[in-house]
Amino acid sequence: MKRLLWLLVCLVGVPLLPVRVMSAEPPAAQPGGSGCLTCHASLEDEEMSKAVPAWQQSVHKTAGIGCQDCHGGSPKSMVKEQAHDPNAGYIGIPDPTAVPEQCGKCHQVQRDNYIPSPHGTVGEFIPNCVDCHSDHKVVPADVVKISTPKRCGDCHTDDILDQFNGVITGVLTPIAQAKQAAADLRPAGVPVDHIDAGADLAREMFRQKVSHVFVFQTIVPRADSVKASLKKVDTDIRAARTEVSTRRKFGIVAAGFLVILAGFIWLYRRTLSE
């Protein structure tokens, strides 16, 4: 319908980009509580206010995880002393050694992999969750980005980092490609739910067996088994693509036939005027 409209618009000669309905904004409340956000957003000291915009972009806002879930206190209160009352559970900046358990309240799989891992056992959690995922913005850890010598190179050689990157991206890239293929094929009207589900399953396997383990020898075979599970997804993607091109061929043949029929009618009409 939008495309037809587009055709209409093209006909009257107005260049116009295809209509794109914006994705729906999730109906997130303000879980941080008006108190924290109102005061901290307006504080002069940037160290004290920068958390607000960072959190507002974060997946935690969407998921309804607010300030008090990590910092404690009374988020609804507009009085500084009440909001920051230790009796209300206020802890301020969490102790770095407590961070993995703090995040692990929800991210259990990650915690369970991380705590016995080399990063969890060397010293007191080096690096910990927020070192790689940032504190308030809560971003996915980009392996390529954080594994630069600047961040990881203090302890690891470039070779090790490259190898590690290779394993991680070797799994995540095909998963992302499968998700993308499903998303691209969906509007074409071919069944893609099983492709999407297969990719999700692979991602979940990655999350449980590969991510946050940090032991090279352990994750290599696991990563391979995740990749093996994507084989069927790949076959399905190829089948779906074939289906789309079959439909197109069918359409072209049928359209060609109609045009030929129209051509004959045209010829026939010409004989009428003779």
Binding site: Q57, C106, Q108, P140, D142, V144
Partner: peptide, 17 residues
């Protein structure tokens, strides 16, 4: 441009108790 550039899929499905 505000959205963080990501090459890894965002891990937003959280396990909740």
């Amino acid at each position: 441009a505000a959205a963080p550039p990501t090459s890894t899929p965002p891990e937003k499905d959280m396990k909740k108790e």
